[in-house]
């Protein structure tokens, strides 16, 4: 699959956050690999028809979090995985994500087994090797 960003207006997710989420997802699912170049801020802004500051903000956040690296004058690339978060912080973030997932799933009346099964199925879609810290 080719990497593409699709944004929607009128959502309760701000546009810059939609871009951040989709880039993160594309990397996690393997649509973007380490070293891949992203379109420039200007090009992506033109394609999405949004203010370039919005795209720049998304890219800045991704660079800050170590997801992308910006090479001066060349643009933004998918960074080699280096964890900018401490183990405790990684745990905390994982826990927050799991809390949202489980409460949502249980409120929707899924059983524990069904939830575990769905998570396992989702994981099958992602590359398996553990990232080097």
């Amino acid at each position: 699959m080719v990497f593409d960003v699709v944004i929607s207006t009128g959502s309760n997710v701000p546009i810059y956050r939609q871009i951040v989420d989709q880039v993160r997802h594309a990397i996690a699912s393997g649509d973007l690999a380490v070293g891949d170049q992203l379109p420039s801020v200007r090009v992506l802004a033109e394609r999405l028809l949004v203010n370039h500051n919005t795209v720049a903000k998304a890219f800045n956040e991704l660079v800050r979090d170590g997801v992308l690296e910006s090479r001066h004058g060349l643009g933004a690339f998918v960074a080699k995985r280096r964890n900018v978060f401490s183990t405790a912080e990684r745990r905390r973030r994982l826990d927050a994500a799991i809390t949202t997932l489980t409460s949502e799933a249980l409120l929707l009346d899924f059983s524990h087994e069904e939830l575990l099964e769905a998570v396992a199925k989702k994981l099958n879609g992602f590359p398996k090797e553990k990232r080097k810290a």
């Binding site: 207006t9 546009i15 949004v50 203010n51 500051n53």
Partner: peptide
């Protein structure tokens, strides 16, 4: 047009 505003305005 709030769609346009969301795209353009900061």
């Amino acid at each position: 047009l709030l769609d346009d505003v969301e795209r353009v305005a900061d």
